[in-house]
Design a binder for these strands. Structure first.
Lengths: 348, 348
DNA sequence: GTGAAAGCGCTAACAT
DNA sequence: ATGTTAGCGCTTTCAC
């Protein structure tokens, strides 16, 4: 901050070449003679020149900035996703501008506008709702940069999407529970208006159907917060015909289910079996290790990046690409055979 | 992307005012007459004008971009920190450019250079090592923007820092263990060359001293990865005089300790008590709920942001500010009375 | 292979 | 209160 930083002009001056040539050795946009190149390199070293990427971006209309939008950075799932994306970005000479929507549609729109104003070249979004992207596109009349939707909004028309085979994952999980003898299986979910969640519910429903258990389907909706989810499932757990198994459709829902079951003094999986969603280290550290439907989050990140780069390089086909990656059911300790319900001990 | 976006020039033209006036209604830098203001607003609406923040930043030399550097985004602690910072940034009209150092000094330097090239106005860094910032400053000969170091590098000269009272936290944790009758308490840590870690070790050592247990101090160093940490503590656990308690100095170390103890078929806290570091939801979901030293991560974020904004506004004093926030020992279920060691069951 | 010149879109001086 | 002008630092025609 002492005296103002040298510009490419200074470099050119010192090297006795034109700014254009200096620029060309820095960016390799066009061939440069060995003689000139050497002198420019020398000048750069002596001056400690660093290019101003802001100016370069303005002129070249290439910011090499990618906007990343997630509902909640502190959610392990999204944090892992961002981690994966950042790795790719660093390797490709891009930087990430990260914003959070807090699961709020209005905030999301506002934050995305901020990203667009910054001339980001592309967008990777876990939208707060399935219609987010369509809304954005409508408002901007098509003036939206290449975008990839991840985890949510999968299959939206006109945009590349990456997601999991949620229905299949949920089907496997529910079958597992039914195979264990469970007949009262509750689903715990933050909401039901997202397609990926609906797919999970559909998988659940299908499994129930197969076993003629459809009438016993029950879905607890608790909102995005831990407390809300916990409250929702606790209510269900208080009923006389309380579920003997809970299928939590997100990692936060799984946490909520565990806490609720504990709070009632019930045993996992003795009284209540639990299947979660997503798979992270802490889920198999303390007991019981959680049975869960693992989503391939690293592949989410790499697929999303690949798709985005294809769009940016113009190498992509006109139609949207829709990637669906398989989930893996990890059977661990939180699920066990169904047992007859005991009353909750008074005062427990 | 259809036809090129309107510029402030177009707005001015349509409103019948000068670009300067249009700019002034957009930015409120100088007062504008009601008449002109209204016409500019109208033009903006009709054209769907959005300012190009890249150009504005270049001209005004104010990017309103803050660089954030963390060792590992997927680590819950850092993810929570970033979450907190992003909230503040959004509220203050800034955006965050997020990079990860992967705990690697060279990568860190490279990524920070990339941030500086983008003319970020400030830097919030969890450095990969205590000397990172000094190295950066040396290399750039003072050409470094306002910076706040968080979690690590606390007390570094010439830079604002935010951290926890690690020694006190560790002292409390170790006293708790000693009070439970433990005499062989191992520390598990990724490394010992970071000041915050050394402070934790110092707190541990002090507590040992108080109880005349100094000769029994043992520190297992396992590197940053879960597997490395787990391997390190497993070795110690295999010894005949294995520890009856483990004090893990990071959340990853805690996870490693738990996994290692489990793998040996030992009970927590029956055979081995564990105290962790940091506090997150999953730590008190599955059993046993983890006793841990909680760092006030949200306050880390808000303090760091406040400090940075003070520097940016010039409202800060010349000397560096050093903030140390208290930790809280959360006593839960993973710590219990020391019991005589039993042999590890053969074949377990 | 190299240079001269024109701006990217915006805002800060300096006018009035 | 408003307009005019210059130029942030860079890249890119277009010449040679």
């Amino acid at each position: 901050m002492s005296r103002k930083a040298p510009t490419i002009h200074d470099v050119a001056l010192r090297a006795g070449v034109s700014p254009a040539t200096a620029s060309n050795v820095v960016n390799g946009n066009r061939p440069v003679g060995d003689e000139s190149r050497a002198r420019v390199m020398k000048a750069i070293g002596e001056l400690g020149y660093r290019p101003n990427r802001l100016a370069a971006a303005l002129r070249a209309k290439r910011s090499r900035l990618i906007g990343v939008v997630v509902p909640e950075i502190s959610n392990v799932f999204f944090a892992s996703l961002v981690h994966g994306i950042e790795e790719q970005a660093a390797a490709s000479g891009y930087e990430l501008v990260l914003v959070s929507s807090s699961e709020d549609k209005a905030i999301e729109q506002r934050r995305i506008e901020a990203l667009l104003d910054r001339q980001i070249e592309g967008l990777i979004v876990v939208p707060s709702n399935d219609a987010s992207f369509a809304a954005l596109r409508d408002k901007r009349c098509g003036g939206v940069p290449p975008t990839v939707l991840v985890d949510r909004g999968c299959g939206s028309p006109g945009v590349d999407t990456v997601g999991a085979e949620c229905a299949a994952g949920a089907l496997a999980a529910t079958r597992h529970l039914i195979g264990l003898g469970h007949r009262d299986i509750a689903v715990l979910t933050p909401w039901i208006n997202l397609a990926n969640i609906r797919a999970r519910i559909e998988g659940y429903t299908r499994a129930l159907d197969e076993a003629d258990l459809s009438p016993r389907a029950r879905v607890c909706v608790g909102g995005p917060t831990l407390d809300g989810l916990r409250g929702a499932i606790e209510q269900d757990l208080h009923r006389a015909d309380r579920p003997t198994a809970i299928f939590a459709l997100t990692n936060v829902a799984a946490l909520a289910a565990i806490k609720a079951v504990r709070a009632l003094g019930l045993d996992i999986p003795g009284d209540v079996s639990i299947v979660g969603f997503d798979d992270f280290d802490w889920m198999c550290a303390l007991r019981p290790y959680l049975t869960t439907v693992a989503q391939p989050v690293d592949e989410f990140a790499s697929s999303a990046w690949r798709l985005l780069m294809q769009r940016l390089s113009g190498a992509a086909r006109a139609e949207e690409v829709r990637i669906e990656l398989p989930c893996a059911l990890k059977v661990r300790e939180s699920t066990g055979p169904a047992r007859p319900r005991l009353k909750i001990a008074a005062g427990a």
